[in-house]
Amino acid sequence: MNSLKSIIFDLDNTLLWDERSIDEAFQATCGVVEQETGVNAEHFEHIVRQTAKQLFEQSDIFAWADMIEVTDLEALWGTFTAQHTAPLQKLSEMASGYQRETWFLSLQQAGIERPGLDVRLAQMFAAERRKRPLLYADTIEVLDVLRSRYSLVLMTNGSPDLQQEKIDSIPGLSDYFDHIIISGTFGVGKPDPSIFKHALNLLGLPPQEAIMIGDNLNTDILGAQQVGMSTVWINHHHVEALEDRKPTFEIRCLSELPSIIQTL
Rank of each mutant, 00 (worst) to 15 (best):
239 V>T: 15
45 E>T: 08
195 I>G: 05
38 G>P: 12
42 E>W: 09
115 P>H: 02
8 I>P: 03
97 G>N: 14
163 Q>D: 07
77 W>F: 10
213 I>P: 00
197 K>Q: 15
24 E>N: 12
157 N>Q: 08
238 H>S: 09
224 A>R: 07
55 L>S: 02
120 R>V: 05
108 Q>R: 13
219 T>G: 01
119 V>E: 13
59 S>W: 12
6 S>W: 03
169 S>W: 02
43 H>C: 08
264 L>W: 15
263 T>R: 15
177 F>E: 02
174 S>I: 01
78 G>S: 10
13 N>F: 13
262 Q>T: 11
37 T>L: 14
40 N>S: 14
98 Y>V: 03
182 I>D: 09
86 A>P: 06
128 E>G: 00
145 V>Q: 14
18 D>Y: 06
7 I>R: 08
86 A>N: 04
191 P>C: 09
91 L>F: 12
123 Q>K: 09
57 E>G: 00
162 L>R: 08
138 D>M: 04
39 V>M: 10
174 S>M: 06
67 M>N: 14
113 E>N: 09
181 I>D: 03
33 V>R: 04
27 Q>P: 00
49 R>W: 09
248 T>D: 04
238 H>R: 14
195 I>Q: 04
8 I>V: 12
149 R>Y: 13
19 E>I: 04
131 K>F: 01
242 L>F: 07
5 K>R: 13
9 F>K: 04
84 H>Q: 13
241 A>H: 13
173 L>E: 05
200 L>E: 10
185 T>M: 10
182 I>Y: 01
97 G>K: 09
78 G>T: 02
114 R>I: 05
14 T>N: 07
250 E>P: 00
219 T>C: 03
237 H>V: 14
116 G>I: 05
82 A>G: 00
27 Q>R: 12
254 L>S: 06
125 F>A: 07
226 Q>S: 11
17 W>L: 06
112 I>E: 03
256 E>N: 07
9 F>E: 07
30 C>A: 07
207 P>F: 14
129 R>Q: 08
257 L>A: 10
42 E>L: 14
235 N>P: 13
255 S>I: 11
208 Q>I: 11
91 L>C: 06
175 D>E: 13
260 I>G: 07
220 D>P: 11
55 L>H: 08
259 S>G: 01
238 H>Y: 13
134 L>Q: 08
107 L>G: 09
105 L>F: 00
244 D>Q: 10
211 I>L: 15
30 C>M: 13
137 A>C: 04
82 A>S: 09
220 D>L: 08
193 P>T: 06
188 V>P: 00
73 L>S: 05
110 A>E: 04
32 V>P: 00
197 K>I: 12
254 L>A: 06
114 R>P: 01
174 S>D: 15
169 S>Q: 05
41 A>I: 02
120 R>H: 11
26 F>W: 09
223 G>I: 02
263 T>G: 06
143 L>H: 10
7 I>H: 09
145 V>W: 09
255 S>Q: 11
144 D>A: 00
19 E>V: 02
11 L>P: 14
199 A>G: 04
244 D>Y: 13
32 V>Y: 13
157 N>P: 09
242 L>Y: 08
31 G>D: 02
234 I>M: 10
150 Y>V: 00
176 Y>D: 02
219 T>M: 05
241 A>F: 04
197 K>L: 15
182 I>L: 12
103 W>F: 10
192 D>K: 14
165 E>C: 05
150 Y>A: 01
165 E>P: 03
27 Q>C: 06
96 S>G: 05
